[in-house]
């Protein structure tokens, strides 16, 4: 039950983040909004890391260097997300975002990218993505 609540709030926070950024960017600009939300998030994360005595950053050197730079994508993600929300609204933006996100996960699994165990493509995945695309088309009509 607790896990379900965490997952529910995880989703709510993701959407809220996009909408809050889009609201903030109307006042101060998109890059300003991205910089401030990431900066304050970073400060809070540092405070939490220190107070929970998490010293595992020492293990960063054991991670393949490429993977350490995932965080930099956030700049482009926030800019694109905010621009999309301004142009087509939240529901359609989140729907298209989900399709792209699942497609990347699907390609990673089927092509075995990034050291993930390769999995064969199956019909249900195509049906799933097809249904999602159909849903987005209905929303954008």
């Amino acid at each position: 039950m607790k896990g379900i609540l965490f997952a529910l709030f995880g989703g709510i926070f993701i959407t809220l983040q996009g909408v809050a950024n889009s609201r903030i960017s109307q006042d101060i600009g998109t890059w300003q909004a991205a910089t401030i939300t990431q900066m304050t998030g970073f400060i809070l994360a540092v405070v939490l890391m220190v107070s929970f005595r998490d010293r595992t950053w020492q293990n960063f050197k054991r991670v393949k260097p490429m993977y350490l730079f995932g965080g930099t994508f956030a700049a482009v993600v926030i800019f694109s997300n905010v621009t999309a929300i301004h142009k087509v609204g939240v529901t359609l933006t989140i729907s298209a975002l989900l399709i792209a996100q699942l497609s990347v996960a699907f390609l990673t699994d089927t092509c075995g990218w990034f050291g993930v165990t390769k999995q064969r493509m199956r019909l249900p995945q195509f049906i799933g993505i097809g249904m999602m695309v159909a849903g987005v088309l209905i929303l954008s009509m």
Partner: peptide, 13 residues
Amino acid sequence: GIIFALIAGSLVG
């Protein structure tokens, strides 16, 4: 708008 959302989604993935 949809193209921007797709870019964001791929990078999030």
